[in-house]
């Protein structure tokens, strides 16, 4: 396939992915809005005033960035894992596999689909959060780059999950037992300086902490950790996951006999 044909194929996959998650918007776009609104109401409006300030900011303003990023993470991830596994399960993935489409185009197509859903949900949640807090923006560049990179990273993660999944249970194991705990412990609700030294050290082993802090820096201008370290860690994860996915796709793991 020449470059132009590959571009057509890529766009086809992206449109297909976009169509999929907008068709079932009640399952994809609506739930994160409801969940995060509840967080805003409970932690921001009801409990927040009693907590007082966190790192010099109102509690609601402190938690909003993390909640936005959390919805980006879960939505990018679950979009790719559900869609890819679904295609594998229904065997409609074979449509792509028997075509001349190169593996990296398939991968990029799914990733872009996941990023699109992550960012759309992120935007909706951001708009909703304006009802509860008055967000200021410290650095647009940091916000946009971190949100895109994070969405890419978790779309790639969802893809890996989709490649290895053999049943629908395998699709929900990683989000439930790894992703959600890491996100909650990734400093959405607190600054890690509140933790005892030992748990501060443990927290630093959690990659999501770096993303949430960098994203929060984009809004508030504060971070528990160095911004550049965040970019470095996200970058490394993206490269590694990209290589892993491409490797297993070309070996035909779980998709070719």
């Amino acid at each position: 396939m020449n470059a132009r044909e590959q571009l057509i194929t890529f766009i086809t996959i992206v449109i297909k992915e976009f169509t999929r998650f907008t068709r079932i918007w009640q399952q994809t776009l609506l739930p994160p809005v409801i969940t995060t609104s509840l967080y805003f109401i409970i932690f921001g409006n009801l409990i927040g005033p009693r907590i007082g300030q966190m790192d010099g900011f109102n509690y609601i303003d402190f938690i909003v960035p993390g909640l936005i990023l959390m919805s980006v993470i879960t939505n990018s991830y679950s979009n790719v894992v559900t869609s890819f596994f679904g295609a594998k399960f229904q065997r409609s993935l074979e449509e792509m596999l028997v075509s001349p489409t190169p593996n990296y185009v398939i991968l990029l197509g799914y990733i872009t689909g996941g990023v699109a859903r992550g960012i759309i949900v992120g935007l909706i949640v951001t708009i909703v959060s304006l009802l509860f807090s008055d967000l200021r923006i410290h650095s647009v560049g940091v916000l946009i780059s971190i949100v895109v990179l994070t969405a890419v990273l978790f779309s790639l993660g969802g893809f890996t999950n989709g490649v290895f999944a053999r049943s629908f249970d395998d699709v929900s194991i990683v989000p439930t037992f790894i992703l959600t705990p890491l996100t909650y412990l990734g400093g959405i609700f607190y600054s890690i300086h509140l933790l005892p030294d030992f748990w501060q050290g443990v927290s630093l082993g959690n990659p999501i902490l770096y993303m949430i802090n960098a994203f929060r820096f984009g809004f508030l201008g504060i971070s528990d950790i160095s911004l550049w370290l965040s970019y470095l860690i996200i970058g490394i994860f993206i490269l590694v996951l990209f290589a892993i996915n491409l490797h297993f796709l070309s070996r035909g793991h779980g998709i070719r006999h």
């Binding site: 132009r4 057509i8 766009i11 086809t12 297909k16 169509t19 449509e95 792509m96 001349p100």
Partner: peptide, 14 residues
């Protein structure tokens, strides 16, 4: 949709 996608996988313009 299925036919349009299929064409897309072979690089055929819309």
């Amino acid at each position: 949709q299925i036919l349009l996608n299929q064409a897309g996988y072979y690089g055929i313009p819309r």
